Amino acid sequence: MLPALGLAVGVLCGALEPSGGAALLAREGFVVGDAPRRLLLVPAAEGGSMEAHGSLLADERLESSQDARRLHRTLSLVTTGSLLVTGVLGTLTAINEGTAFKSGRCETGGPLFGDYGCDSLHIVHGASAILSTTLYTATAVQGLSIGSPSLAQEHGPLYRILSYVHLVGIVVQPLLGLISAYPEVIGIDPEAREHFGDVMRTVHIGVGYVTIAAYATTTVLEF
């Protein structure tokens, strides 16, 4: 009887040995001694995964922002070139049609580009101005898609001031050009229209130079 009882106790104790329990728990994926460590490591692993995901998102945002800045610089260069062409055409038109300081060559003789310079050059100048305004608007809208920091924050107060300058210039230039070419739209007396047109053309050219210079400077600051 006693040997049988001893054998039963031995079998029972053997079934409850750590090695047997360890084998059973190992099949479940962990051991008892590892439980505290695993409880600590599981949250850490999850946190690490979240941290890696956040880092990946940050890298994607940075890359997207850099792409947007590169695109904006390209558009700014194209717009600057278009503004320069518009300014040159405006200057040639003013030489032919006259300013507050000098009569135009269409009146005194020897106009630039001959009859074409007197009859059609101002139309080409107007078309170039429309293109420049369109490019300016597209560049400005694209600049709004750039994340923080904004272009003004990145390039400082000078950039911000010059941005306001060329924005005002772009807004008023079409009005000045229209009034210069057609003073009658605002009811100027027929006898005073020629002189008024020369004066407004002079203002138009001056504002154009300031606008182009301000925009070109902000473009340089972006590089």
Results as ranks from 00 to 15, higher is better:
A4T: 14
E17F: 09
G20H: 05
G20P: 03
L25S: 11
L25Q: 09
R27E: 14
R27V: 15
G33N: 13
D34S: 14
R37N: 09
R37G: 13
L39V: 15
L41P: 10
G48Q: 12
L56P: 03
L57V: 15
R61I: 15
R61N: 08
H72N: 12
H72W: 07
T79D: 03
G98I: 07
F101D: 11
S103G: 11
S103L: 14
C106I: 08
P111R: 00
G114A: 08
C118F: 07
S120P: 04
L121V: 11
L121W: 06
V124E: 08
L131H: 03
T137V: 14
T137N: 07
A140H: 14
Q142D: 09
G143S: 09
S145Q: 13
S148I: 04
S148P: 10
S150F: 07
E154C: 02
P157T: 12
I161M: 08
L162H: 03
L162G: 00
L162N: 02
S163D: 01
S163P: 05
L167R: 02
V168M: 04
L175G: 12
P183K: 00
F196T: 13
G197R: 00
M200C: 06
G208I: 05
T211M: 07
I212C: 01
A216L: 08
T219K: 00
V220T: 14
L221C: 04
F223R: 09
F223T: 13
